[in-house]
Write a protein that binds this DNA or RNA. Structure first.
Lengths: 348, 348
DNA sequence: GTGAAAGCGCTAACAC
DNA sequence: GTGTTAGCGCTTTCAC
C-alpha cells in the first residue's frame, strides 16, 4: 500500500476555513505574524482531526535544507565509543528536529566520499566526524566546499577545524602520581601505533613520567598493532626483563587495556597484586572483565551532545550569513575540551 | 555561507541545449524512452562541467519517498551487536541509494514513537528494528499504519512480521554434544531473565540437555539480571554446591559470557581446566579477554544485509500495489533464518 | 527522440 | 490578522 493518503496543510486549511499560509504560520510559530486565538485554535483542531503531519521533505525543499546531518565514522574504531556519542548527539539534535544519517568513511579520493555526495545531493546539511581519522587534505577540501562540519575526537588536532575533544591525557599524570604514591616501580606503557601524526598518548605518558621524576625507559614502552603475533611477543619481552618488572601498566586505548589484562593473566600475574593496570578511554565492558579495569573515561555522551550543538550553530549561522562578514564558514574555529575522569576499578 | 549555489537540472538542460525532461530521463535511465547517443553525451558532459548533483529532496518530494529508512534500536542492548548489523544494512541499501536514519526507541505510547512520527512526516519510507523488543500491541499498531518494517532479532518470534533471525539456538545442542564427547559433567546455564515472552535460550538448553541424555538440574541453571549483587550471589551458590560442580557453562548472551568468565576467575577457577565456557552470541571482544571466549556467533553482517533487502522489497512492492491483490502490506510475512556458527576459542 | 507544462507540499514576501 | 501567490527542483504525462 502506498503511504496512507497524506493530509496536507491544504486540507487542514480547508478544514479550518483559513489559508495554507495561516497553517504554516501557526506551525512554525512565525514571529512578525499575529494570529487570532480562535483562528489558531481552529487550525489546531483541524490538525488533530485530520491527523496531519507536516511533510518534512516538502519543507526541506522550500527551505533548501534536509534537516538531517551525517555522522561519519570509521568502520573499525567505532564499537567501543560510537553508541554513547550517538546518544548525546541525538539529544542535541532533538529540539531542532534534525535527524541523523549514518555514513561510513571509506573513500579513496575525498571527492568520492559519501558525505560529500550526500551534501551535494542535499541529503545532509552538515557532518560530524566521530573518531574518524581525517587527513589535512580532506580538511582543506571540505573547508573549500562550505560544508559545515565538526570533529569529535579524543585529543585536539590543532588544526583549523571545530573540534570536540577531552582533556583525558592530563589524567595520565594523575594516574602516575597515584602509582607513585603507592610506591609502584617501573611504570610501563602499552598502546597502539598512532594512526597518523605523532603519538600524543605516548608523549603525555613520557611527560607525566618526567614530571613525577621517573625516567621513562624504552623497554617499558610497548607500541604495537593489536596483532595476535606481534603484541604477545612484545609483552613477553616486557615481562621477562627481570630488571624492570613492570609494577603498573598504562594502556593507551580500551582495546589495549583489555589486551594488557589478558596478557598479564596469561603470564600468570596477579592484578593488581603483581601489576596494576589503567586504560585510557571508555568502554561499557570494563566492568565485565576480571578484574574490572580502571580507566580514564571520556565524556562520550557530552561530546556527542556538544558536537550537535556546535554543528547546529554552524548550520544556522552559515545560513544567515554568519557573524563574520565573509561568506566563509568556520572563519574562526573552536576547540572544545570536555573533562574526562578517572574511574578506579579493581585493576589498579 | 549558504549551500553553494546549487546547479539544478534546469542549468544542466540549458547548458546541454536540451529540456529538463531529457536530463531527468537520462539520469533515471527511464525505460520507454530512447535518447540519442549524442544527446546523452551532451547532457553527461554538461553534468560533469557544471558539477551537477540531483537534489534528492526535490526528487523525494516528487516521488513521495524520502529515500531513507529508519533503524530503530534500544539504547541499551546495542553495543555488542549493532555496528556489524549496520554495516550489512548499509551495503544492502547502497545500490538503491537509500540512506539510514538512526532512531532510538524510547516511547511511552506507540503513537509517540519516533519512527511513527518520522514516517508520518515522510522522513523515512520504512523501518528496521534491530534487537529492539517490540510488543504485540506495537506490532498491531504498525501493521495498521502501512509502515513497511522488518525485524532483526536472534530467534523467530513466531509473530506476523517479517523477521531476519538465526538458527543459533540449534548450536546449543552441538556445544553440549561437544562437552559430552569430552566427558564433561554438570553442564550449567547462565543467562539473563527474558525481556518478554518465554525464554527460548533456556528452553533450547534444556531440550539439548535432554537430547543428549542429561537431566537438566535446577541448581545448574542461573537466571539473573546482570546486577552487581544478584549475579555474584547466584554464581556463589553454583560453585559452592560440591555435588554438582559445573564442568562447563553455557552463557545465554555475550554479556553473560563475559560475566561468567569474570566470576569463574574471581573464584579462582581455571578456564577451561576446571570449567569450560561458551557464550551464545557475537562480540568483537571475545578475543580480547583471558581466556578468549568461545561463542555461537550470529551472522550479524548478513542479517543487516538481508534485512535491507527485504525492506527494500516491501517498500518497492508496496508502492506498486504489491503482488497480493489487496492494498495491505505484509499480507504474507516471512521469517528468514540465517546460519550462525560455533567459534571455539580457548575457553572451552 | 524530445519538450512543455503541471504539480508534489511547503514557506514567505507582499498585498489587503 | 490573513490570504494570494510564486516558486524550491524534480518527474512524468501527453503532445509533437
Amino acid at each position: 500500500m502506498k503511504h496512507k493518503y497524506s493530509v496536507s496543510s491544504k486540507d487542514v486549511a480547508r478544514e479550518a476555513g483559513v489559508s495554507q499560509a495561516t497553517v504554516s504560520y501557526i506551525l512554525n510559530n512565525a514571529r512578525n505574524v499575529k494570529i487570532k486565538p480562535e483562528t489558531r485554535q481552529a487550525v489546531l483542531d483541524a490538525i488533530k482531526k485530520l491527523n496531519y503531519y507536516p511533510n518534512q521533505i516538502a519543507r526541506g525543499m522550500k527551505l533548501r535544507k534536509s534537516m538531517s546531518v551525517g555522522v561519519v565514522t570509521d568502520r573499525s574504531v567505532t564499537n567501543f565509543y560510537f553508541m554513547k556519542v550517538l546518544e548525546g548527539m541525538k539529544d542535541g539534535f532533538q529540539e531542532d528536529n534534525y535527524s541523523i544519517t549514518l555514513l561510513f568513511d571509506k573513500h579513496e579520493k575525498i571527492e568520492d566520499a559519501e558525505f560529500i555526495k550526500y551534501y551535494n545531493s542535499n541529503r545532509i546539511d552538515g557532518v560530524i566526524f566521530v573518531f574518524a581519522s581525517i587527513s589535512d587534505d580532506e580538511i582543506e577540501h571540505m573547508n573549500s566546499t562550505g560544508l559545515p562540519y565538526v570533529v569529535v575526537d579524543t585529543h585536539p588536532s590543532g588544526r583549523n577545524v571545530h573540534e570536540i575533544c577531552t582533556d583525558h591525557l592530563a589524567h595520565i599524570q594523575d594516574v602516575i602520581g597515584y602509582f607513585k604514591s603507592r610506591d609502584i616501580k617501573n611504570i610501563a606503557y602499552a598502546g597502539p601505533m598512532p594512526k597518523c601524526r605523532n603519538d600524543r598518548r605516548l608523549e603525555a605518558f613520557i611527560n607525566a613520567m618526567v614530571y613525577h621524576g621517573f625516567e621513562p625507559k624504552d623497554n617499558l614502552i610497548i607500541r604495537s598493532t593489536a596483532d595476535d603475533k606481534e603484541l604477545p611477543e612484545a609483552f613477553k619481552k616486557l615481562f621477562e626483563n627481570k630488571n624492570f618488572k613492570p609494577g603498573a601498566i598504562i594502556a593507551g586505548s580500551p582495546k589495549f587495556g583489555m589486551l594488557t589484562v589478558k596478557s598479564c593473566l596469561a603470564f600468570g600475574m596477579k592484578i593488581p597484586g603483581d601489576v596494576s593496570i589503567v586504560a585510557v578511554g571508555s568502554s561499557n565492558i570494563f566492568d565485565l572483565v576480571y578484574p574490572p579495569l580502571s580507566s580514564i573515561d571520556l565524556p562520550l555522551y557530552d561530546m556527542g551532545l556538544k558536537a550537535a550543538q556546535v554543528l547546529l550553530n554552524l548550520i544556522k549561522g552559515g545560513d544567515k550569513g554568519g557573524g563574520n562578514g565573509s561568506g566563509k564558514a568556520g572563519e574562526e574555529t573552536m576547540t572544545i575540551l570536555l573533562p574526562s575522569e578517572l574511574t578506579l576499578r579493581e585493576s589498579s
